[in-house]
Amino acid sequence: MSKEIHKLNPNNWVKLHADYLYNFAIGRINEHDLAKDLVQDTFFAGLKAMDNFQGLASERTWLVAILKRKIIDHYRKINSNKGKAEVKMNFYADGEREGEWIEERVPSNWNNEIEKQIENEELNVALEKCINNLPEKYAMVFRMKTIQQLETEDICKELEITSSNLWVIIHRARTQLRKCMEDNWFKN
């Protein structure tokens, strides 16, 4: 069997791949304009890099690889300064009480009809809102792990982070999400 050599045809890129790439991006970065820009950037970068295309991968796989680079760049950007300032602490970071709950973040009792509440169709609106309230970096990793259900290893590779890094992020995302759901949904 001879290997197929793939060719690039930028004239069809938008028609063939824009939706796919957009869906890939929006699953990670839940922001329409940003996802759209990343797709557009991917096409531009693809044009520039056309000479490097060897035809071993399909056009789409090749474009996705470029998009992944764009997503990492974005992740690094939000990871640098901005993201850090927004973190709400749940535990004392140092001192005698290091690692203990900060009083106002301690889980409080939720009302009784939890099971019924889980079934409520409007719950997803509250969840979505709370996830979007997370600092961007946390929301992104949380989405990939929890909603897209990607493997830990794959996320680490994709974002070039370590697994302990990932779990710290998931931990912070979930403690913050818990608090948000408590305030907006489960509290008596």
Binding site: A18, N23, I26, V39, E119, N124, I131, I147
Partner: peptide, 16 residues
């Protein structure tokens, strides 16, 4: 909750 509402959460609310 997330499991129960995963489909709704996973569906992009926007598209191109």
């Amino acid at each position: 909750c997330i499991q129960k509402h995963k489909n709704a959460l996973n569906k992009p609310t926007t598209c191109l």
